[in-house]
Design a protein around this nucleic acid. Sequence first.
DNA 1: TACGTCATGTAAGTCGTTACATGATTGG
DNA 2: CCAATCATGTAACGACTTACATGACGTA
Lengths: 184, 184
Amino acid sequence: MNVKILCLGILSFGEMTGYDIRKLASEGRFSHFCEAGYGSIYPALSQLTEAGHVTFAEEAEAGKPNRKIYSITESGRQALHLALSSAPGADRFKSEFLFHSLFADKMPDDYFRTRLAAKISETRATVERLKSSLEKCDHEPSGFALGFGVAINEAALAYLEQYDETVIMKAALEDSGFMESVDE
Amino acid sequence: MNVKILCLGILSFGEMTGYDIRKLASEGRFSHFCEAGYGSIYPALSQLTEAGHVTFAEEAEAGKPNRKIYSITESGRQALHLALSSAPGADRFKSEFLFHSLFADKMPDDYFRTRLAAKISETRATVERLKSSLEKCDHEPSGFALGFGVAINEAALAYLEQYDETVIMKAALEDSGFMESVDE
DNA sequence: TACGTCATGTAAGTCGTTACATGATTGG
DNA sequence: CCAATCATGTAACGACTTACATGACGTA
């Protein structure tokens, strides 16, 4: 799933600008399973235009760069279809957080607790975002994808929260141990 | 988390060959949150050697390429520590499957059902693999990371299976509708 | 005999990220 | 007035993938 196919896929839902595509892909309702920045979207759009898979209508506005509203062409739809007809590659999850967590025992005490707290609030925010997208969504397949995101992020959140409690308990036990010996 | 830091991290658990690192990173107990192939590991190891972050002991064996057993140096540990001391970047999930699922309604009927079935058995296998790794694991932080993997993959599996049932029901209803009109 | 595992590496190419460049408008 | 949003794009760089090259040993 390279950026070109991603653009084609997004444009198959309606015409829009490169700016809009990036928004959908990295903040919007597709952002939980893909990622693309300006630096890859704009060149992709140029190439797709050259190949005849998309066209654009230019809207000139004073002072601003010309707004280009892209739409997918028939040949673009065919290219998308072709890409969709071969089996999807494997899902990939990359987590620096989990990598860092591997060394929790070699880092200062509060290190992991801080990271964990951050990850929990981050995940909570993601769940909220996905749920509200899901509520607004009336397109069934998008709903399926959003539901998937909600399911795994809720599971992640539950796991992290449960772990957090055990960490807090351990810390409390240690603290009370210290208290007894340090308390004057 | 580039490949160099990944290598450093893995080597901090014990000395091993580039071949072993790749196994851990793309099939073993780290593979659910990172990924690295030979083509990135071997060059990374050379660079780390140049930088003095790792050393290797060479074992010559007739006919085979020399086996190089890498170990992390003190400077390597420092580099790892440094990398770990800044906040981890955001987790990233990339799913071609979810992207494809977006167009389920525009593809042939059995298309999505086939993909879904494949994804279910794939996820089931992942859950099994992670669980068995978890059982064998006696290193707490690794256990935490594995547990995370189990949690999200189990959630994904449950979601997919539940969805699968509704799809099957729909198909059955449609089939029986067809049956009545087609049955001679 | 053919495949899988062990084992290392390179070279070319693709792909994407980051930083830069520009600039108006709107809301706090 | 400052930050964010809208809006487009390029250039350099870095990172990773894919394919290639080599070869022994064990096992089905």
